[in-house]
Simulated assay, not measured.
Amino acid sequence: MRALLFGAEEKSPEAERTLNRVIDMAFQSVEIYERLSMVAQDGDIEGLYELIAEYPNILEHFDNVSFCETPLHIAAEKGQTHFAMELMNLKPSLALKLNVSGFSPMHLALQNNHIRMVRGFLAMDSSLVSIKGRGRITPLHYVAQLGNEELLSEFLFACPSSVEDLTIKCETAVHVAVKSQQFMAFKVLLGWVRRVNREEILDWKDEDGNTVFHIAASMNQTETCSAAL
């Protein structure tokens, strides 16, 4: 390591001391974030505050990294709801971060079916319904794909503009529901766009030039086609 950092030739005592400080800081940093990862996995709120007392700026690091797994991602994946809410209260910006796979904490909570946590996120920041992850897929798109009608309704009421969000394939949540053959989810979305006078969304085309009704017809979804009449 010394050769890599300073070259193979002999260095002065001051250079050696500098190198040792760099190495010590690197190992200390790794240990700190390993401890933070462990308290997130365990949902250990007391442990979180002990770390903050030792290292008051420990959460600031994540603001300076574009894509990373934050302790909020870890808590979301593990279903540590109370820890996640405490952490989000301390550092709201963590909820906006994508990990290296392109997922936010909200996406991970949905993927792992931690619905209580999803609702907690929603209560703290309704705009998270529209956070764009991998493929520009939002939590609303994901719930439309799953066909969770109750959560879909909650998302729409919390963040009405989310119905306009498009994936990289130019799909609305309505497109996603129809392609996933989630008829009840489609009915919720249809009722919503009618309620807010945005029925023109039904005529929006995906990247292949298909509206939701073109897709429904091609998949022989007669119920979907009939619902619009």
Rank of each mutant, 00 (worst) to 15 (best):
M219R: 15
C159E: 06
V212A: 04
T81S: 10
A144F: 02
A123R: 14
L108S: 02
F186E: 15
T167I: 13
E150Q: 04
I131F: 12
E207R: 06
P105Y: 05
A216I: 01
T81W: 00
L202D: 14
F155A: 10
L189H: 14
D208W: 10
S161A: 04
K179H: 03
E200H: 10
P92L: 11
A158F: 15
L108H: 04
V174Y: 12
L110H: 09
Q181E: 15
A144M: 00
V163F: 05
H107E: 01
L166G: 11
F83M: 02
A177Q: 03
A217G: 09
K179E: 09
T172A: 02
G191K: 07
E150V: 03
A216K: 11
S127D: 06
S153Y: 11
S162L: 04
L94W: 06
A173C: 13
L98F: 00
G133S: 01
M85V: 14
L156T: 15
N220D: 08
I115V: 15
F121P: 08
F213C: 02
F83W: 09
V176I: 08
K132A: 15
K169P: 00
I201H: 12
V178M: 04
A144T: 13
S153D: 11
L166S: 04
D203E: 15
Q111S: 10
Q145M: 11
V100Q: 06
A216S: 01
C159G: 06
Q145G: 09
R134V: 08
N197K: 14
R195Y: 10
L128K: 00
K187N: 07
S130H: 10
V163G: 00
D203N: 05
P105R: 07
V176T: 08
D206E: 13
M219D: 12
K187L: 11
G147C: 00
S130D: 07
L189Y: 11
I115H: 12
V174P: 09
M85Y: 08
N113R: 10
M88P: 01
Q182Y: 12
E149W: 02
